[in-house]
Amino acid sequence: MLLSIDWDAFSGCMPLVFDAPIWGTRDREYDRLGAWWDRARKRDPRAPGWTALEADFPLYPGWEVLECYAGIPATVALTHADAWAWLAAFPAGDVLNVDSHHDLASFSGDPARVRPGNWAGLSLRAGRLNRYTCLYPDWHAELPVAEGFDLERTRAELVPLLPGDVLERVTLTRMAAPGAGLPDPADVKALLLVQSPAWTNPAHDAVFWQLARTLRARPLTPPLDRSAPA
């Protein structure tokens, strides 16, 4: 199988953080950095660096498990829209995507244009994927409005958005514990690590970059370095 990892499965938010991008955001340059500056300043304009974001936007455990995939061909990308090009290098097969979003359909804009929110659905429709599994992180169990909180509700929301033959090739599941449910490295043909800066706390970029180095991930599209203080 192919393994896709969205950093927003680990760089997340606490419950009831109403300006958290997990609830929906665009993927503009402002959303990738400027919006995070605004969040930090709103919380404490005098706090150094990104420290004002720590309480509301933690780095959840479980990402450490990903280091077991070192040695498997790995690619790092800026956004999940880049998964469309990544998949083109492989025969159609199965993908496990660890993510805070199913990426099967976008609720606005041109549905035929590849975006972070619809690459998986378009890939299923185009025959670039046979089967698709979205593995939500365990911390979604504490966020009642998150996709991964109520999997039956989330699947029902997909019914009007996807053809029946596409939806029957989709599995939605959630980690039982941090890092649980990930495949044996022997079963993974290649890995894609996605930064998703519009959705992930800049304070966690250093860990993200270190993970990319551990995996020896070659860049498909260069991620952002947002380590400079706000």
Rank of each mutant, 00 (worst) to 15 (best):
Ala52Asp: 08
Leu172Lys: 11
Ala74Trp: 06
His101Lys: 06
Asp184Lys: 08
Asp99Glu: 06
Glu67Cys: 10
Ala89Pro: 00
Leu182His: 01
Val166Leu: 09
Ala92Met: 07
Cys68Trp: 04
Gly121Phe: 08
Leu104Glu: 02
Ala81Arg: 15
Ala89Arg: 15
Pro160Gly: 02
Ile72Gly: 03
Pro61Arg: 09
Leu135Gln: 06
Leu53Asp: 06
Pro185Leu: 00
Ala77Tyr: 00
Glu67Met: 07
Pro61Gly: 04
Ala141Phe: 03
Ala190Thr: 05
Arg113Phe: 11
Pro137Asp: 14
Gly181Cys: 08
Trp84Lys: 01
Tyr60Ile: 07
Thr75Met: 02
Phe57Asn: 03
Arg113His: 14
Val188Cys: 07
Thr171Cys: 11
Ala81Thr: 05
Phe149His: 15
Leu104Asp: 04
Asp184Ala: 12
Thr173Cys: 05
Gly148Gln: 01
Pro185Trp: 00
Ile72Cys: 05
Pro91Trp: 13
Ala120Asn: 05
Ala88Val: 09
Pro116Thr: 11
Leu172Met: 11
Leu59Trp: 04
Glu168Gly: 13
Ser108Tyr: 13
Ala186Ile: 02
Asp110Phe: 14
Asp150Gln: 07
Pro58Arg: 10
Ala126Ile: 07
Pro144Met: 09
Arg115Val: 15
Pro183Arg: 11
Leu96Gln: 13
Val98Gly: 06
Val95Met: 07
Cys68Pro: 00
Ala176Gly: 15
Val65Gly: 04
Asp187His: 08
Leu192Cys: 02
Glu142Thr: 14
Leu167Gly: 03
Ala141Gly: 10
Ala176His: 11
Arg115Asp: 14
Trp63His: 15
Gly93Thr: 14
Thr79Phe: 00
Leu161Tyr: 07
Lys189Gly: 07
Gly109Arg: 08
Pro178Ala: 12
Pro178Glu: 04
Thr173Tyr: 04
Asp56Cys: 08
Ser106Phe: 05
Pro144Ser: 10
Leu167Glu: 02
Leu143Gly: 04
His102Gly: 00
Val145Lys: 11
Thr133Asn: 03
Pro178His: 07
Ile72Tyr: 06
Pro178Tyr: 02
Cys134Trp: 10
Val145Cys: 04
Ala105Phe: 07
Ala180Tyr: 01
Ser123Thr: 02
Arg169Cys: 13
Tyr132Ala: 11
Gly121Thr: 06
Leu135Arg: 08
Phe107Ser: 06
Tyr132Met: 13
Ala180Thr: 04
Asp110Asn: 14
